[in-house]
Nucleic acid binder design. Sequence first.
DNA 1: ACCTGAACACCGTTCAAGT
DNA 2: ACCTGAACACCGTTCAAGT
Lengths: 191, 191
Amino acid sequence: MAMGLSRADWTEAALDALAQDGLGAVAIDPLARRLGATKGSFYWHFANRDELIAAVLERWEQRDTIELVAEIDKIEDPRERLVGLARIALGQAARGADAQAGVLAAASDPRVAPALARVTTTRLAVLERLYRDVGVEPEAAERHARLTYAIYVGMSDLHRAVPQAALRSAADLEADIELMVDMLVPAASGA
Amino acid sequence: MAMGLSRADWTEAALDALAQDGLGAVAIDPLARRLGATKGSFYWHFANRDELIAAVLERWEQRDTIELVAEIDKIEDPRERLVGLARIALGQAARGADAQAGVLAAASDPRVAPALARVTTTRLAVLERLYRDVGVEPEAAERHARLTYAIYVGMSDLHRAVPQAALRSAADLEADIELMVDMLVPAASGA
DNA sequence: ACCTGAACACCGTTCAAGT
DNA sequence: ACCTGAACACCGTTCAAGT
């Protein structure tokens, strides 16, 4: 069953594994079992595990940064754009569909570091632009971007760290988004 | 060389490995080589790898939560206590001495989840108390605590994600601490 | 009491062989 | 073109044997 696996199939399964159980779970043998194939099949599509890791990071960068930013930029109103970003990003984090934590844990891994630095820099630049669009002074926008991004990453981690606690419900997710939006919008309307 | 290894020696080395390269690096063979011992030696001190993981998480909880809170509580002035906490926590994160990211990446691992939930809950409770001590209303204190903690975790991750960028210098660390303190103190003096 | 060294199971990797 | 299956190196684990 599941004949004719593509490189994309392996990569997608690996991205799931990364989000759920970290880089160590991006492992050929378990993925092969999960996909109903042999390890030998994997080596038709990839030279080795490193190439799979590279592909999975590229896919992550594409989906959770490039495509996400394109989505956000469809929103006309600058203020709504910030709120929309908060909603998408935190929603994704709460669903556990975010590979961010998995990538961060492997931050010092030389295969991971370049992609992580690139993604982080891009995201900070995007946020900075969104803040400028909403009327924040250039220097303040840079600090706002850093603080906002820290809050996003931190909130993601909180949801992962205390999944059984109050944070979990949809109402609480709404509350967290509002906290973040409160954080964003007054700051934006202020300076 | 390095004869007579203790359980604590193995645990300390494992905590280093966890902070630097994640849970996967808490591995017997590499640690044995690093400590100049054989794998057989490890199994005198521990039943198995899981027991080492439990020990390392316990040590992390002790050092980066229990002892840290005790340290903070020595500070008399409530406002200074918040600033002091920010300074210690971010300083540690910037030195890469923080196992937080490594633990978070393995958040879904059943060996890790209980310790992580316990630590997170404790830290949020401590922060909430610090905010109440500084005069914040109870309900606001809980939200302030969550937001502040998210900022701390997020800032830690930023430092890990973009180590080569501007964030790295001591001056920038100071700036980040001030950002966080600005975040804390006006909020505290406010409500 | 504390450690070594050899043994075996698991996952990364290779490769000859199949369809 | 795409995959299997057997082979071998690495790390977790066991255990008899050493000091």
